[in-house]
Design a protein around this nucleic acid. Structure first.
Length: 659
RNA sequence: GGCGAUAUAGCUCAGCUGGUUAGAGCGCACGACUCAUAAUCGUGAGGUCGACGGUUCAAGUCCGUCUAUCGCUACCA
């Protein structure tokens, strides 16, 4: 038994969507890591949960005609049942709507507030609209923002801010002093990159009258906590509520996908620092599974979803593929063919078949009873050495989060076992009664090899490992030391062959069916590759709202304040200092104006010349990257980010007013 | 535009502080074997180590420039 502790977390997932491959990967990953540590005898704790507050939830619940609580109950339980289906063995499932969580959020908010690290927006100061934050005196040049060349305005916002910027120098130093704090290194560098520039203060509240579905600030009931000070704290509140903070917090390992690096790598440590709490131990960041989604199938709603494949191929095969085919930190491509190939090569051919051929020979030569082993000979040495070194070897990889390589190391020993059989040729030994003892030794070694491999793989394929051990006549009581401890199988044990662990997948058949799907567009294997963010969590802000959200009603007088006019584009060129902006010269009758517009992604400069568009003519001019823009071109943008500029039905004189 | 990461056999990736003929797994081809899930075992095919230039007795491995991909960040009135 080790005296180490290990506390691992997944993000808490936002309940406005059902679980997908991204959520699943992070959670499976943490499950594997936690199982591994448990196998080593560590005192482990595995936390997952759901993030349930915010405007989006409120709206979704309204739309569904039920209370937010009922709505979140529904979705949250869907996450739970998905994890159960996937064989996830979490220790605790936290929901941000639980009292225990709110209690800790309140305590931390109050602590940070009392410390003076939370300021009210009205406190405000010089706010640069372009920067979307308050500026310090040092950042002003001639009283203007040096980035935008505009005079910042005095602003009083109805918002509370966490004084995060204050902790920037500390955080930089902390990350530099602790090389393993954020890993892999690429993400550590990325955070350091973010910290090179001011990070500003963090808005942490929303007015309660607008967003009632949240945790009220302890000192001001008119505001609720917004996102981060609510969601991130779950990692801590879960322990607080159980009184296990001292036991587990020092060993906390967060696992996230790269899309939420900033909140976890920047916001969270500064929050902890301000609250006077110990900083978490490791932030482990993984990449995305790129999934192929066809447009047509998407709209038809018949996409073969990755999570469906776990039903088709089984949980353990699914988990094995996810762990083996991704280098931690990098992106990988998810595909059914890849999964099938992986399962065939490693699990069916190498491991599953090793079990079958061993059991087959035991049955044939020893009546399915594990034989006595004589002293190992020279010929057995390589096999024994490989397995004895296995636990230490995989530990090096797993500790470095190199799960693919750790698993590969196990498979190396498995493949060696197959070679061992080819070299010792038990079927020939069986023909000579005088070699019976040697035959027994060889098969005993095969049983041992399988036992050790099954234990080493058990964090990844827990169910199949148990099945394998059961077929060998062994129970489920094992530790990682057992994986390298040769000779724990007992002669005389009755083995019982069962169904193949991992049935071989017919690749020709699968390819044919995939091709047929491609032909009909009924597939997820098209060439249009879309990145699906994994671990889409604590990021309510970026979530889509379905349906159109209307703005407040205006009167005709309000509308009359705006001046829309037809403008003819007479010249257009790329903005020299910005790569998303176009600089257009437009004519309103005889008047010529310059307008800077961010439509370069959709229009080439030359294509626009000669077109007539509708502009907002009385918008206050503003400098964009050094060029004064005297108006705004009207354009429509859809939910997918496609954009089209306004066009007129008939030709009409430029300068005409639009009403 | 700024910052960063990545670019090695068909595919996925190893190659630490520079040093004999650049490695692994998968896939593929051929051969062997028969205990086994047409599984296994052996052999092989020869990749200008993204491009160009430089440092060095010696560079995939260091420096510079460039290109491509990805990410973060600023601009999208």
């Amino acid at each position: 038994m080790s005296d180490k502790t290990f506390y691992a977390t997944t993000p808490i997932f936002y309940v406005n969507a059902e679980p997908h491959i991204g959520h699943a990967y992070t959670t499976i990953l943490v499950d594997v890591v936690t199982r591994y540590h448990r196998l080593k005898g560590d005192d482990t704790f595995f936390l997952t949960g759901t993030d349930e507050h915010g405007e989006k939830i409120q709206k979704a619940a309204d739309a569904a005609g039920i209370s937010p609580q009922a709505y979140t109950d529904q979705i949250s339980s869907k996450f739970r049942s998905t994890w159960d289906d996937l064989g996830i063995r979490y220790d605790e499932f936290i929901r941000t709507t639980e009292e225990r969580h709110k209690k800790t959020v309140n305590e931390i908010l109050q602590t940070v507030y009392d410390k003076g690290d939370i300021i009210f927006g009205e406190y405000g100061g010089l706010y640069c609209i372009g920067c979307e934050r308050y500026l310090t005196e040092k950042e002003l040049v001639d009283g203007k923002c040096k980035d935008h060349d505009t005079v910042p305005e005095y602003r009083s916002e109805e918002n509370y801010f966490f004084r995060m910027e204050k902790y920037r120098p500390w955080l930089i130093e902390y990350i530099e002093d602790n090389p393993d704090f954020i890993r892999p290194e690429r993400y550590r560098n990325e955070v350091l990159g973010i910290l090179r520039e001011p990070i500003g203060d963090l808005s942490i509240s929303r007015p309660k009258d607008r967003v009632p579905w949240g945790i009220p600030l302890p000192w001001d009931d008119n505001h609720v906590t917004y996102v981060w000070f609510d969601a991130l704290i779950n990692y801590y509140s879960a322990l607080e509520s159980q009184g296990t903070t001292e036991r587990y917090w020092p060993a906390v390992n967060h696992f996230i996908a790269k899309d939420i690096l900033k909140p976890h790598g920047v916001f969270w440590p500064t929050m902890l620092k301000s609250a006077g709490l110990p900083i978490y131990k490791h932030l482990n960041v993984h990449g995305y599974w790129q999934t192929d989604t066809g447009k047509m199938s998407k709209s038809k709603g018949n996409v073969v979803r990755p999570l469906d494949l776990k039903d088709k191929y089984g949980n353990d095969a699914f988990r094995y593929y996810l762990l083996k085919d991704m280098s931690f930190g990098l992106d990988s491509t998810f595909g059914e063919l890849g999964l099938a190939e992986r399962v065939n090569a490693d699990l069916a051919n190498d491991l599953g078949n090793l079990l079958n051929r061993t059991l087959g020979m035991l049955n044939k030569y020893f009546d399915s009873v594990v034989p006595e082993s004589a002293e190992p000979t020279e010929a057995d040495n390589e096999l024994l050495t490989s397995f004895k070194a296995l636990p230490a070897d995989i530990d090096v990889f797993f500790e470095k989060l190199q799960f693919d390589r750790g698993i590969e190391r196990i498979m190396e020993s498995v493949r060696l076992s197959n070679r061992y059989i080819a070299e010792t040729k038990p079927w020939e030994l069986a023909k000579d009664e005088s070699k019976k003892e040697r035959l027994g030794t060889v098969l005993y070694n095969c049983v041992e090899a399988l036992r050790c491999a099954a234990i080493a793989l058990s964090p990844v394929i827990p169910d199949k490992s148990l099945e394998l051990l059961a077929q060998l006549g062994l129970g489920d009581n094992y530790t990682i030391e057992g994986a390298g401890n040769w000779g724990l199988s007992y002669a005389g044990t009755k083995t019982q062959a069962g169904t193949p662990l991992f049935p071989r997948i017919d690749m020709d058949e699968l390819r044919a069916s995939v091709e047929a799907d491609v032909a009909t567009g009924d597939t997820n294997m098209s060439d249009e590759t879309t990145a699906i963010a994994t671990g889409e969590a604590v990021s309510a802000e970026t979530e889509e709202v379905t349906g159109i959200v209307h703005k407040d009603e205006v009167t005709i007088d309000d509308f009359a304040k705006l001046e829309f006019r037809v403008a003819e584009i007479v010249a257009c060129e790329n903005h020299p200092k910005a790569d998303k902006l176009l600089v257009l010269s437009v004519k309103l009758a005889d008047e010529e104006r310059t307008i800077v517009s961010g439509i370069r992604e959709w229009y080439d400069a030359e294509d626009l010349v000669g077109k007539k568009v509708i502009i907002v003519a009385n918008l206050k001019p503003v400098k964009l990257r050094g060029i004064l823009s005297q108006g705004m071109i009207m354009a429509a943008e859809d939910a997918d980010g496609n954009l089209a500029v306004s066009a007129l039905d008939k030709d009409i004189a430029s300068g005409s007013e639009v009403r």
